[in-house]
């Protein structure tokens, strides 16, 4: 697994990555084309599972990396890049902004 931009975040990143990779592998499992209602249910279940398994690890890692990004003076550049070119346009309210 790759290093973090700040060596102090690397252990937190590796702990989170290991959890994410495991969840991700299951998430990618073949799904049979399903009715919209079932699709939403699966989406909810997978999101809940991710939160339950990896949520705490993500929070620790994200705090560390956000601090490192700010310390390196990258925050405004990143903010600008996200604003200028929303490469992936989320078509739903960003749930991350709530927490």
């Amino acid at each position: 697994m790759a290093e973090s931009l700040s060596p102090s975040c690397t252990p937190l990143k590796h702990a989170y990555d290991a959890c994410f990779n495991a969840w991700f592998e299951g998430y990618l499992e073949p799904v049979v084309a399903s009715a919209p209602a079932l699709r939403e249910r699966r989406a909810r279940e997978k999101a809940d599972e991710y939160e339950a398994r990896c949520g705490a690890l993500w929070k620790n890692y994200r705090e560390c990396v956000q601090k490192a990004v700010a310390e390196k003076g990258l925050s405004s550049m990143l903010e600008q890049a996200r604003k200028d070119k929303p490469l992936v346009e989320p078509s739903y309210p960003d749930s991350e902004k709530k927490d």
Partner: peptide
């Protein structure tokens, strides 16, 4: 590739997964 960080990750209500990574 010197470093690779996940800076945002969101499973969406539509079942897709959005990720932003910052690489050096």
């Amino acid at each position: 590739v010197v470093s690779c960080d996940v800076i945002s990750r969101t499973p969406t209500p539509y079942g897709t997964l959005l990720t932003q990574r910052l690489l050096l």
